[in-house]
């Protein structure tokens, strides 16, 4: 099994797909960072032009807020849990003041999560699809499947080795997205922002979004959280792609089918949000980070757990179908 997986990984490396993907990624990340930097500067200029003054010094505002919080914190009658929440905000503010960072300046670590949040529904799945679409269908279209399947190895092992190699490459791909978006955007923004505090942890309780249980964590941890979700989504997409790759004969039709599903799914989500079945479609559930940021949900009542379960079911079913079909399929090329 190790040897088989090693083979498959070697094939993926030799096809130089990863280089193509990294090239795409580099272009997109650069464009995005440039765009953000540009918009930020334009806004500052505009503000100065309109009001004829510099931006109100954020440090004054923050200092005032800090005093306010501290005086209230000193009040003995407030409950303990409220006090800790004051502490949390004080901590967040103090951080920005001490490090002399305006909370609204773009940083490399806020960019990488934003890039992931934006990319998770289309761009990152697309990269995974490019990586995975020809894994099986490619072997059929250049007929090498014949030398692969006439060895003394059961077919399920061959597919499993492909899945494992894909799993590893996808994992590394997600990591590379994080690394590249951080490094490239650092070139633009010149700020890491690695320890800035972020608010997260909104819970959905009985159908409504609760902001009470939020927690404060540092940027880099938040980045790990977001990319963990990206990773999960990517693995699910990889599994679905693998199934499609088994079912069709050419990698271009595999890519076509999956792109249609991704884009069509987005449309479905907007136009048929009331239709209950939409929430069981995998595309509708891709945007996992929105549950961490506590933002708007496309279909009422969806939760992180729901989305994760739905995606997991899709992945498992895809793998089952893929394995069954791969084992049964007649090779007539």
């Amino acid at each position: 099994m190790t040897a088989l997986t090693r083979n498959e990984l070697l094939k993926m490396l030799l096809k130089k797909k990863m280089l193509l993907i990294l090239f795409f990624l580099l272009i997109f990340v650069s464009l995005f960072s440039y765009g953000q930097q540009y918009a930020y500067e334009r806004n500052l200029e505009q503000f100065e032009a309109e009001t004829g003054e510099e931006l109100p010094d954020w440090r004054d505002l923050a200092d005032r807020r800090l005093d306010d919080l501290e005086s209230r914190r000193a009040n003995e009658s407030i409950p303990e849990n409220v006090r800790t929440s004051f502490d949390r905000e004080i901590q967040q503010l103090t951080y920005f003041i001490e490090n002399d960072i305006n909370p609204i300046t773009p940083t490399a670590f806020s960019f990488n999560t934003e890039f992931a949040e934006q990319g998770i529904v289309l761009f990152i799945p697309l990269l995974v699809i490019i990586l995975a679409a020809d894994l099986v269908s490619g072997e059929f279209s250049n007929r090498t499947v014949k030398i692969l399947l006439t060895r003394a190895v059961p077919r399920w092992k061959i597919l499993l080795s492909k899945f494992l190699a894909l799993f590893m490459m996808t994992t590394i791909l997600v990591f590379l997205v994080a690394v590249l978006s951080t490094l490239v955007s650092f070139l633009f923004f010149g700020e890491w922002g690695i320890n800035e505090p972020v608010l997260t942890g909104f819970t959905l309780s009985e159908g409504t979004l609760m902001s009470d249980s939020t927690i404060l964590i540092s940027r880099w941890r938040y980045t790990i959280l977001i990319y963990s979700l990206v990773w999960f989504v990517s693995i699910v997409i990889a599994s679905i792609t693998l199934m499609v790759s088994v079912l069709v004969d050419s990698s271009s039709s595999a890519i076509g089918i999956l792109m249609a599903a991704l884009i069509g799914g987005q449309f479905l989500q907007f136009f048929l949000a009331d239709w209950e079945l939409v929430q069981y479609f995998f595309v509708t559930n891709l945007d996992l980070p929105r549950y961490l940021t506590g933002s708007f949900q496309p279909v009422e009542g969806m939760t992180l757990t729901f989305s994760i379960l739905t995606l997991a079911v899709w992945a498992v079913l895809s793998l089952i179908i893929g394995f069954v079909q791969f084992s049964r399929r007649d090779v007539l090329v």
């Binding site: 070697l10 030799l14 250049n142 007929r143 014949k146 692969l148 003394a152």
Partner: peptide, 28 residues
Amino acid sequence: VGCIIEGPDLYGYMSGYKNLELLANMSE
């Protein structure tokens, strides 16, 4: 069994030797 069915289809993006190595890995 060793076989060639309808033409010798190999992985075009690697050397002949890599092809053989790869397939050798698949047998004990």
